[in-house]
């Protein structure tokens, strides 16, 4: 869950913290805000969930395109639970197989992308993304989608790896040659040595053995000491 509210405009904050979040008239404001997030590469999960809730209550106002945009935005913050939280607010028949309408089909496609990302099957993710033009249509509104996903893949990679085979990582990031090198050196700040990419140590990939020692408080001995005083010498 991402609670970065620094980019949230005041009028959105105003709606979210009042009962206006249930007012169907605010739908258009939230829709514009989703559009804005897509263009500016920002992300506001609470506002997006509020819009999905408005749709949930007022199905006649639903705009399929906005919902899929919200889902696409939620993909860019994996592995947080956001994508799932959005799905929970969709109509219950949105995930039935086979899909009942084109919208359900789009949702199912995005759901499969989300599962690939969560299962860390990055190479398959990119292959699936390129396998069908429908995917291209779905992500077209979300500026820098591929870049944002790459950054997330890089961060999960850095969690588990200190060194990784270059070819493997190229597949994960769907980048080769110059594009790969500039991403690794520029965006990630990692080093390439021959066919190995070296990732600097961080808190997550150190894997240091720790021993949690018992924390002994003086209070625990209170009774023993008291007894010692009370005991006749």
């Amino acid at each position: 869950m991402t609670f970065d509210t620094s980019t949230r405009p005041e009028h959105i904050q105003g709606i979210l913290s009042s009962l206006d979040r249930y007012n169907p008239e605010t739908v258009t404001i939230f829709q514009d805000y989703v559009q804005q997030q897509c263009e500016n590469r920002t992300y506001d999960s609470l506002a997006n969930l509020a819009l999905l809730k408005l749709y949930q209550f007022n199905p006649h106002l639903t705009r399929d395109e906005t919902i899929t945009n919200i889902l696409v935005k939620a993909l860019t913050v994996f592995p947080s639970a956001d994508f799932g939280l959005c799905l929970h607010l969709l109509p219950a028949n949105a995930l039935t197989e086979p899909p009942i309408d084109p919208f359900a089909e789009a949702v199912l496609k995005l759901f499969s992308l989300s599962r690939l990302l969560e299962a860390c099957e990055y190479r398959e993710f990119w292959m699936t993304l390129e396998s069908d033009d429908l995917y291209a249509d779905l992500i077209t509104d979300c500026a820098g989608f591929e870049e944002l996903i790459r950054l997330r893949i890089a961060s999960t990679t850095a969690q588990s790896n200190r060194e990784i085979n270059r070819e493997l990582l190229e597949g994960w990031l769907n980048l080769t040659a110059d594009g790969f090198e500039s991403f690794i050196k520029g965006s990630c700040g990692w080093a390439i040595e021959g066919d190995v990419v070296k990732i600097p140590l961080n808190k997550e990939n150190e894997a240091k053995t720790t021993v949690t020692r018992e924390n002994v408080k003086f209070d625990q001995f209170q009774r023993v000491i008291k007894r010692a005083y009370e005991q006749p010498a």
């Binding site: 588990s160 790896n161 200190r162 060194e163 990784i164 085979n165 190995v196 990939n205 150190e206 894997a207 240091k208 053995t209 720790t210 021993v211 949690t212 020692r213 018992e214």
Partner: peptide, 17 residues
């Protein structure tokens, strides 16, 4: 916890004393 160095897995444990 663990970390991968190429194909080598370094494993660590958080033990409770």
């Amino acid at each position: 916890d663990f970390a991968l160095q190429g194909d080598l897995i370094h494993i660590s444990e958080a033990k409770v004393g």
